[in-house]
Design a protein around this nucleic acid. Structure first.
Length: 417
RNA sequence: GUGGGUGUAGCUUAGCGGUUAAAGCGCCAGGUUGUGGCCCUGGAGAUCGAGGGUUCGAUCCCCUCCAUCCACCCCA
């Protein structure tokens, strides 16, 4: 027997209310915040991610799905994240000619070859928002505010925003220099990974989880203390807006994030009782990314949030999604004599905009009625053999009255939309 | 990539070194020949993850593999 590939999952009908609730809530908010939908391919030229996401990131180094196209010469990558994907589309289609910022959102699967565990998948769905072409910290605030509204609107409580600024091209090199010289004489105390980070990506030293490295990190200079004036102002304004609206954030000086392109504002949303896969949404500013991908210098900021992790947290919190619509009426037939009439009546109901389910197969009327009940239909309609023999039964009310087939459509509520 | 746990019907589980592997839910059918939900009865459905080994005999013991879960790591 075949089974779904490791780290992938089927979202069965039983789970769809959660998924649709999450995605529809996002859709409504995107409209309210002025984000327009974009859909991009699930695979791209590998270079988009190698250069965009960054060569030194774990995602590119060991998690990306790569494949050669059959015609040779092209190496593609299944998208491990959305940002470079969306940036490529922005450049390719000249969206810089639109009024800036260009605010886009998308939802779909992303792929990373990781060892699966709770809330971690090889194919996982992300909701992604990007605001391109604006450096104002108001946009940083806007995105964090969006996520806060989104999660709280879904009913999640006890969230915290982890916030930091990792500087820009002006101040970060100097800070990295400082960090390097701090670490230089402590490397023999640090873990093996840290020695590699020291060379390739020193900022990530601050993110090391090895317990023996924690004392070293604790004594390290923090980037917040070494931001240049513009970066410090930018960061202060973001915090000012957040505080004014009572969004619960904590400045975490050692939050650096794993993607190479981030500048200035970075943030993560974590639930209160989060396990190891606690981050449900995260993002940051990427003012240097567009140049890396061959465009003109263009500021930008975005975030991604994992649908599976949101659903996980909704279930953990006991939050019930709104139920999906049920069929209005179930059309049953007592004997074979009425079968054809029932089939055609079911079709006519549907054409009239009424959600209808038709009995099939040679089941007994009792079995058909059981079906109607299990399908949670509002009404059952029993096609009779003559005038006065057909019944419209109100299932929840357990009452019924005689209704002729020709009158049925007028007696049933039409579905909105 | 590293470490640990677990693998019995669709789901949740029970079970024991030895005749036809059990229950609840779900599914199908019936409960006096045209009607659901409760209740009752019956039925279908499991090569007990796969392969090898120990044994007179293994679902139960051992090994390998696979899958899955959890943690590390990474991140959504």
């Amino acid at each position: 027997m075949y089974q779904a590939p490791r780290g992938t999952a089927d979202v069965l009908p039983a789970d769809q209310p959660y998924w649709q609730h999450v995605i529809r809530t996002a859709e409504r908010l995107c409209a309210r915040y002025g984000y327009q939908r974009i859909d991009t391919p699930t695979f791209e030229d590998a270079g988009v991610f190698i250069h965009g996401t960054g060569e030194s990131s774990d995602i590119v180094q060991r998690e990306m799905y790569l494949f050669e196209d059959r015609d040779g010469g092209h190496t593609y990558a299944l998208r491990p994240e959305f940002t470079p994907n969306v940036m490529r589309a922005y450049l390719e289609h000249g969206l810089f000619n639109l009024p800036q910022p260009v605010k886009l959102w998308t939802v779909g699967p992303a792929f990373r070859h990781e060892r699966p565990q709770a809330g971690r998948w090889r194919q996982f769905y992300q909701l992604d928002l990007e605001a391109i072409g604006e450096a104002d910290p108001a946009i940083d605030f806007e995105l964090i505010d969006f996520l806060w509204q989104f999660y709280t609107g879904l009913g999640l409580r006890g969230l915290t925003v982890l916030l930091n600024s990792i500087g820009d091209q002006n101040c970060r090199p100097q800070y990295v220099q400082l960090l390097r010289s701090y670490y230089a004489d402590k490397l023999d105390l640090a873990c093996k990974d840290d020695r590699a980070r020291f060379e390739k990506n020193p900022l990530r030293l601050l993110d090391c989880k090895v317990s023996s490295c924690q004392p070293i990190i604790a004594g390290a200079p923090t980037i917040a203390e070494h931001l240049c004036e513009p970066c410090a102002d930018h960061f202060a304004r973001v915090q000012h807006y957040l505080a004014a609206l009572d969004i619960r954030f904590v400045v975490q000086p050692r939050l650096v994030r794993g993607l190479d392109y981030y500048t200035r504002t970075v943030f993560e949303f974590v639930p209160a009782d989060a396990g190891s896969q606690g981050t449900i949404g995260a993002g940051g500013r990427y003012d240097g990314l567009m140049e890396v991908l061959g465009g003109d210098p263009t500021p930008g900021i975005g975030f991604a949030t994992g649908i599976e992790r949101i659903v996980l947290n909704l279930k953990k919190a006991g939050i019930e999604p709104p139920p999906l619509p049920v069929p209005e009426v179930y059309v049953a037939y007592p004997t074979e004599e009425q079968r054809d009439q029932a089939v055609l009546l079911t079709a006519r109901l549907r054409h009239a905009g009424i959600g209808a389910l038709g009995a099939t197969g040679g089941r007994s009327l009792k079995a058909q009625m059981r079906h109607a009940g299990r399908a949670a239909a509002r009404f059952a309609y029993i096609v009779g053999s003559g005038p006065g023999e057909s019944w419209l039964r109100d299932l929840p009310a357990s009452s019924q009255e005689a209704v002729e087939p020709d009158d049925l459509i007028d007696r049933l509520p039409q579905r909105a939309e």
